[in-house]
């Protein structure tokens, strides 16, 4: 059903597929990788929050929350709420995988995002599940931000191998099986 799902998405022009994995052992096998990690914070009653630059905003609040139990879960690793009580050492932190990503269409996904620097590389894609991705792709990013991803006409692949593509390209790259190598085109 997963391969059928990917085929449907490819026909529809989707570049990515994302999910929250109920069983991580399944989706890793289909090319999904961890795109983001979320934190569950445990804050004791009476915890003091020190939120710089928010004093002015707080002074304008005219209502107060009197008594309520909060479970701040699903926070990103860069969420300022982690630091307001004093940082990870001051709060109970539990992390877990959050969004899993899978590139459905390599060409579309590579061309859709931005890059911080110009580059010209050839990527070798081994994708036994989404066969339309298999082969070599030349990613060209100009200094103007213009970018293009397309199969190179004749070049032999020299570039990149990656089991779970989406995390390093679209997420935080937390996939435990990530393996990426990139060379410039010959």
């Amino acid at each position: 059903m997963i391969t059928h799902h990917f085929a449907q998405l490819h026909e529809q022009g989707a570049a990515l597929s994302g999910l929250h994995a109920a069983e991580v052992q399944i989706y890793d096998n289909f090319g999904y990788g961890i795109g983001s990690v979320e934190l569950l914070l445990k804050l004791e009653r009476g915890a003091v929050f020190n939120a710089p630059n928010l004093d002015a905003a707080a002074s304008e609040v005219t209502t107060r929350l009197i008594d309520r139990c909060e479970r701040p879960w699903g926070r990103g690793a860069d969420d300022p709420l982690l630091w307001w009580p004093g940082g990870p050492l001051e709060v109970g932190v539990r992390s877990s995988d959050s969004l899993w990503l899978r590139l459905v269409d390599v060409g579309t996904a590579l061309a859709a995002r931005g890059y911080s620097a110009a580059c010209d590389v050839v990527l070798e894609v081994a994708d036994p599940v989404c066969l339309w991705n298999e082969g070599t792709w030349r990613l060209t990013v100009a200094g103007t931000g213009w970018r293009r991803a397309c199969p190179p006409p004749t070049k032999r692949a020299r570039g990149c191998r990656c089991r779970a593509w989406a995390p390093p390209i679209w997420g935080r790259g937390a996939s435990p099986r990530r393996h990426t190598r990139v060379w410039p085109p010959s």
């Binding site: 022009g13 990515l16 990013v141």
Partner: peptide, 26 residues
């Protein structure tokens, strides 16, 4: 699954919409 096209960083600090499908699960 369902359509969840996302806005992502594009070239030169711009934003771009990327077609994305969220799988509710199998």
């Amino acid at each position: 699954s369902y359509d969840m096209a996302v806005t992502a960083t594009g070239p030169l600090g711009s934003l771009a919409r990327c077609p994305w499908q969220g799988c509710r699960g199998c």
